[in-house]
Nucleic acid binder design. Structure first.
Lengths: 214, 214
DNA sequence: GTCTATATAATGATAGAC
DNA sequence: GTCTATCATTATATAGAC
């Protein structure tokens, strides 16, 4: 279900075209002319409606952030996970939004930084509730764990083209998503190491690659 | 330790400048003139040495891939993890390489795709060995798990600016790296869920966000 | 609102002097 | 090898016709 995205004004069509192109190629590689062609209008009209390319970018950011954030259904506002799940459930419609969302964290914008920080805060809250209820194991560094989980979670977005290719489809499919989801569930349930053979503690600087050298 | 990177020819200086700028801003946002200024040479010389901007990009890709891949030390060639660990251990020197490496998977290039696939193959092999020796729990979908672990691992690179900010430093620090590494070790050791309260199986399409809604 | 035409700036790339 | 000067192309953005 789209909320107010059934907006068939020309301005909305231009914005949607920009979301597709910026998501696919990045902002710097997207020209006003390319957006115009994609939207089926003239180049001047793109600028006329948004003032400048940077403002068009901001409009796209705002739109995506609003769409992924403004959830009134169920468990309160700001439920990004639920929104993304809905998007995944209707890939033909929402794939451009998912691609743009991934690009948001990589193209560096204030919108991406803000959303990331909000996701960390949400993850932090949920983890704390889980720990309090006994469902989730405490961590020696709760904030680092929250950042780690958000980072891991977003990697499915930022690296979606590689995931799709490696799993055998040209683009992200429901099947690939399901396989990744189940693998992640395994990981979050019991890790990957057998209980008796946990490796020794890491030193500083060993960084993010230790999961490649089990 | 740099291998053959102590190359102080002008051509190498231009390539190093390009690695810094492309890593920081992306290829499309990096002009020949900007590279020239960064390297302290004229704009024409950049093209003279590399032929075109695209060829300069390929040269940067090749350089980084070679540096991160050609490890003859210890456990055989192609040990990307060991190389990245060395880079992390000397951040002032190698930070531009780490940033470029992250950009490689996001800017989409053939070099990035090839490296990703090789990392998945390596991860697959290591996991299989671990399972055979009893150190690692088997998975219902070994390939998906390998892809997941590589994706998670690379997210520390592709999202490094967000991680650094969220952990309180302006850029990636040894302390942040250490905290993330330890949080990941916890995760890989026992997951996050307590044994008795594992959530039910995921359906298709629930995708990569379930780790945000424990 | 939408177009065409255009001004202005920046881009990648070339040519030729040194 | 390196520079300056320049070209052709493309970019964003503006102005004005309809």
């Amino acid at each position: 279900m789209r909320s107010r995205s059934d907006d068939s004004t020309t301005k909305a069509r231009i914005r949607d075209a920009a979301i597709r192109l910026i998501g696919q190629n990045g902002f710097a590689a997207t020209s006003a002319r390319a957006v115009a062609t994609e939207a089926g209008v003239s180049a001047g009209l793109v600028i006329h409606h948004f003032g400048s390319m940077r403002e068009l970018k901001v409009a796209c950011d705002d739109f995506i952030i609003t769409e992924v954030t403004h959830r009134k259904v169920g468990m309160g506002e700001g439920d990004v996970s639920a929104a993304v799940s809905e998007w995944y459930a209707d890939l033909p419609t929402f794939e451009p939004w998912l691609i743009y969302l991934g690009r948001l964290f990589t193209d560096d914008s204030v919108a991406g930084a803000d959303l990331f920080d909000r996701l960390v805060a949400m993850s932090h809250t949920m983890l704390a509730e889980g720990v309090a209820s006994g469902a989730i194991t405490p961590s020696a560094d709760e904030h680092a764990r929250a950042v780690l989980l958000v980072t891991h979670s977003l990697s499915t977005l930022t690296l979606q083209s590689h995931i799709a290719r490696s799993l055998g489809s040209s683009q992200l499919s429901l099947d690939s998503l399901s396989r990744m989801g189940n693998a992640a569930l395994e990981l979050y349930t019991h890790g990957i190491y057998t209980p008796s053979t946990t490796p020794s503690q890491e030193g500083p600087g060993s960084g993010p690659t230790h999961d490649l050298r089990h």
